[in-house]
């Protein structure tokens, strides 16, 4: 099979697409935002409970392609328990990865779970899918209700 496709749709991504983690609504979040990608119809909600500047809980719900769904799922796993400040740093790093600005193999490896998204950089039109959850999380943290990646 085409190697670019293999890079894009890695087993980990397909697994998170099928069985998304933290896929639920948090009834009383301290922070919440809704993300939309009108171009492909992706639509998700990110819920957070932030306590003492830390992500005490994070979850998502919504509808989207495999890339956006798995990205949201993996993001919730990575951010749970982390300081909010680190969440923002990770967002920047993740964005650099999927837009092809991080190419150093060791640096990519050090990103842990997020490294599975390195294949996105070969598919520029999918960058928005992969980053939707992160944009939405960032908006929630900054108390914005909706974001659109258009």
């Amino acid at each position: 099979m085409n190697s670019e496709l293999n890079e894009l749709y890695q087993q980990v991504i397909l697994d998170h697409n099928k069985n998304p983690r933290n896929f639920r609504k948090i009834e009383e979040p301290t922070h919440h935002s809704e993300g939309l990608n009108p171009l492909c119809g992706d639509h998700l909600h990110i819920y957070l409970i932030i306590e003492n500047e830390r992500v005490a809980d994070i979850a998502f719900q919504g509808n989207g392609c495999a890339i956006s769904k798995s990205s949201a799922s993996i993001m919730t796993e990575v951010l749970k328990g982390k300081p909010v400040k680190e969440a923002e740093e990770k967002f920047k790093e993740f964005h650099d990865l999927i837009t092809g600005h991080i190419t150093d193999e060791d640096q990519i490896e050090a990103m842990g779970k997020l490294a599975v998204f390195k294949g996105i950089s070969e598919f520029p039109v999918r960058v928005k899918c992969a980053s939707l959850a992160w944009h939405t999380m960032n908006a929630a943290v900054h108390q914005k209700d909706t974001v659109s990646t258009e």
Binding site: P38, L39, C40, G41, G64, C65, I67, K69, F123, R126
Partner: peptide
């Protein structure tokens, strides 16, 4: 269980141009 956007990307890699979305 497969989102049309994923269909579009895979078809594109196969050289097949279709439209996906709303």
């Amino acid at each position: 269980n497969i989102h049309p956007h994923d269909i579009g990307t895979i078809l594109d890699v196969e050289g097949v141009a279709v439209r996906t979305g709303h």
